[in-house]
Amino acid sequence: MTLLTVSDLRGGYGAADEIVRGASLTVEPGEIVALIGPNGAGKSTLLKLIAGLLRPRGGHVRLRGRDVAGLDAPDISRLGLAFVPQERNVFGAMSVAENLEMGGFLDRAHLRRRIDELYQRFPMLADKRRAAARTLSGGQRQILAMAMALMNAPALLLLDEPTAGLSPRAADELFATIVALNHGGVAILMVEQNALEALEVSARAYVLVQGRAEREGNAAELASDPTVRDLFLGGAAAPMLPQDRGDLR
C-alpha cells in the first residue's frame, strides 16, 4: 500500500491565500522522495498542509490509505507521520534529554529504550544531554530535531530544508544521516534547496512550481535533465518562467 498519497491539495496561510494549488504526489514505504522547486513555490507550505499545521482548503492527504486532510497535527503524528520544520525545530529552553522526551510524548511505553537507542546512534546527544538545545550548533540542532522525530518510530519523516544554514561538511554529514535513517526503514519526503545533493540521495523527486507538482520522476533522471539542471542545479534560485514550465510538461 502506498504510504502517502497527496491528491489535488490546496491551501495556504490565510482564507484568501492559496499557495499550494492542486499539488499531487506519492511516497512509497521505505523510499526517499525529494521535493525541489524555486523559492516561493509552496514546498514548505505543502509539508505543513500534510502534517496538519495548516488546514487544507481542498484535496486529499491519505496516510496508509486513511484520509488525514483536516486532522490536527497531534492526530496526524499519532498515525506515524513526523515533520521536522526548517526553523525552530527544537525546544530551545529545554535540555537535549527533555527534547527527546517531548519527541516521544505519544509513546511513553518505549521512551527510555528509544532515548538509549538514539544516544547510541548519535553519541553527541548523549554527551550534551543536559545542555539547553539553544546552545547546540546548527548541525547538532538538526540532529536533535531528527532524533526527536524518530522518538515516535514514524513510518514517514517530512524534512523541511534540513541542511539550510549548515556548512558544506555539516550538510554532507546530515545527508549521510538521512540515508542511514532511511536504511532503517523510515520513508522520507524532503524539501531541499540543495537540490543536487537531495536528488543524489533520493529515489524519486517532484518539481513543485507555483503550488503544483509540475514534474515527477526518477531522481537520477531529473538530475541529468537539462531543463531541471538549468533551473535548479546550476542557477538554483532562478524563478521558473511560464515558458520554462511549458518545456517541463
Binding site: 499545521l53 515533520f83 525552530r88 525546544f91 529545554m94 517531548m102 505519544l106
Partner: peptide, 16 residues
C-alpha cells in the same frame, strides 16, 4: 514548558 517554548512544534509532537 514545551508548549510555552514552541506551541507549533509541541503540536507536532502530539501535545494537544
Amino acid at each position: 514548558r514545551a508548549s510555552a517554548d514552541n506551541p507549533e512544534l509541541a503540536a507536532l509532537k502530539g501535545i494537544r
